[in-house]
Design a binder for these strands. Structure first.
Lengths: 215, 215, 215, 215
DNA sequence: GATGAATGAGTCTTCATTCAT
DNA sequence: AATGAATGAAGACTCATTCAT
């Protein structure tokens, strides 16, 4: 007996769903502001709610629990990362050394842009997430692994096309590259670098890396 | 009229102090075992005590509180690190490219040995410490900075002696190197690498790095 | 766009506030019952909660902590006392010896009524409050001082209007009067005197006092 | 087979007993210093021991437990008080109004001397003892009662000898007098009065009291 | 959907007291 | 008699989560 909902009902539903999404986004934002300020463990649901002017109970209409928020952000982040590594930035896209170098810089810039859009994201990712619970730690480690796999793909492309040293220990080098990204991210957070400083830092690191791996 | 304590008293004191040191070491050990298993926040003083077969109250005869333990370990670690960077491993010790390469491998090996002596130390350092409290985070960040300063010193030595590229962006490269160490540590923990595998990894990363920075 | 809350919301809010006030009163009541039975220090939050049939955590929705309750009661008491010393009982109200005597009896009766309304209040105030913490001790001492100041005002009025001995050491006598009130309160509590007995006690003490100070 | 101890043993024992008494006195002293500073509940056995430079375990060689100390002092105080109310200060000693007045002043002075010898005694008695446990409260109340009984005896003597008003409500007045002593003690502690100020205060209060009760 | 009071499990920490040395 | 480490009971307080309204 469940008939098709009338169009007006549909519209109302859509609107409601949209409002819910906005609220969810607001909550994530407030949560991250608090997490970044005082750390995940020291932040209470009440802190988040108060910042938004909602009741603590309302929180649970939008998220299953406190750590669910971090999961959502991890999802977002993962999506942005994968999106940044498509098309001209895909592992097999670079066809010669020059393109390879340009690609490396583009990717470094894209990662920087993602982190710079909300510095609280890397902050929490790097400094809090692993302490929340084993599953979340596993997810972060997975990110590390994914980074490693991408690194392997890029290096393999370079070796196969012949502009990287053929004797490269590819997995080891991939990890080293992930580490460099990590270090640059930490330095950026830590020293609160301006965009131009971050660019210089990026270029220097990419240059050293390329020199280290090029044939 | 409080005279000098009798020699027997002295001896008893020394023995007691020694036992206390042993207990302290045991507690650190038990604490780290628990922290590594279930995470710092999820570990209770009771967990640590139970593992040792002591009462939870006894814990407080040796440490001010839970985080005091992490502080102690950070002290130890800092000491070991600094000790490893002395003498032939000191920044200005390498006099030519060959010595430089050998030194890099030695240092990498020494760091690996420190971390391998108790893998829970890097685990907690990397994955928990920053979430405990702001001061502890500051201390870890300080470690990162110290690593950076040492990196700068090594690179400067190489540039000055002429076997590193003169156009190197030294601080950026120092950070990159710190990142590589980080990545190797994470990979070692994560994949539970055997000593020989770790050696291979180390050698590969050092080789790439040297190639990246050598003149 | 946050508009005025709808009237129904207002009403609900008022009701909630009222319920909260009732709960707060209930908690104070339960707390004082326990304090009077077993003493402040020996009373646990759990004792108070159990007596009310609420969970111990709920206590903290209404009071910051255990001592906060004593503070609230001190506030109440101070208010009642000050209210009792208004109008015809104000220091400058009595205009001749007869009025003065009547006033003294009225005030003694009012103080008795306040303490008799809840005998646990003087009990805790006299026997516990000073042992709770320095600030609370300070507050109780302040009460003692206030009593002294009022005493001074009453005596000054009597001396100025000429029906008290002009050579009175006013502050000393004010303290003596405060002490008598104290003693009567202690005796009442201690011997569990009935209302008529307390009245007799009061009258005797006031008579002796007046005889002691009248010209 | 337990023979008489040799004389030297006896002497050693006596000396030991004396040392033990000294230690006991030292502990009481240290305990009271701490109690007066931070209150009974906030003082730990460790605090007392540290102040004396002994170990916390040693405390238990001299006292059964923490509250035992307060008991000892209460005993001391009671003894001093009773001693002060002997001979010329005994209830029936005063034979005329003049002697009565002199006696009242002597007693007030004696009480002041006892309290002034160690101000921590009244402080703890008045502000802490009743909060320790029911038995101790009972003992303090007993002191209050004893004071009352003495008051009754003094007043009865005066009435019988005919220099006090025959219509005096003796028990009520006795309580009032106890209250005055209390108030003077509190004021002395609170305002840290000098000896001469305390004397003036005493004299004023005694004068008012006498005027209040004399025929 | 919103609210916020109620819950109660969970933990750190303190400290009087004991006892082996 | 002195020591001080060990004990373990005890309690205040927090907070994620639930649920009646």
């Amino acid at each position: 007996m469940t008939s098709e909902p009338a169009p007006t009902v549909r519209r109302a539903e859509r609107k409601r769903a949209q409002q819910a999404d906005e609220m969810r986004a607001d909550i994530i934002d407030a949560a991250f502001a608090e997490f970044a300020e005082r750390g995940y463990h020291a932040t209470t649901i009440g802190d988040i709610a108060k910042r938004l002017g909602i009741s603590s109970g309302s929180f649970y209409n939008y998220f299953k629990n406190k750590r669910d928020i971090v999961d959502h952000v991890l999802d977002m982040l993962m999506g942005q990362m994968l999106a940044a590594l498509q098309a001209e930035n895909a592992p097999e896209a670079a066809q010669d050394a020059e393109q390879y170098a340009a690609q490396a810089l583009r990717i470094a810039g894209a990662v920087d842009a993602i982190f710079d859009a909300d510095r609280r994201v890397p902050q929490i990712l790097l400094f809090e997430a692993t302490s929340i619970d084993p599953e979340l730690t596993a997810r972060v480690m997975e990110l590390f692994d994914i980074a490693g796999h991408f690194g392997v793909a890029y290096l393999t492309n370079g070796v196969e096309r012949g502009f990287l040293r053929p004797d490269l220990n590819i997995p080891a080098t991939a990890d080293a590259i992930t580490g460099m990204i990590l270090a640059v991210a930490i330095r950026s957070l830590r020293s609160n670098l301006a965009a131009t400083e971050r660019r210089t830092l990026r270029e220097a690191v990419v240059a050293t890396m390329l020199q280290g791996i090029m044939r």
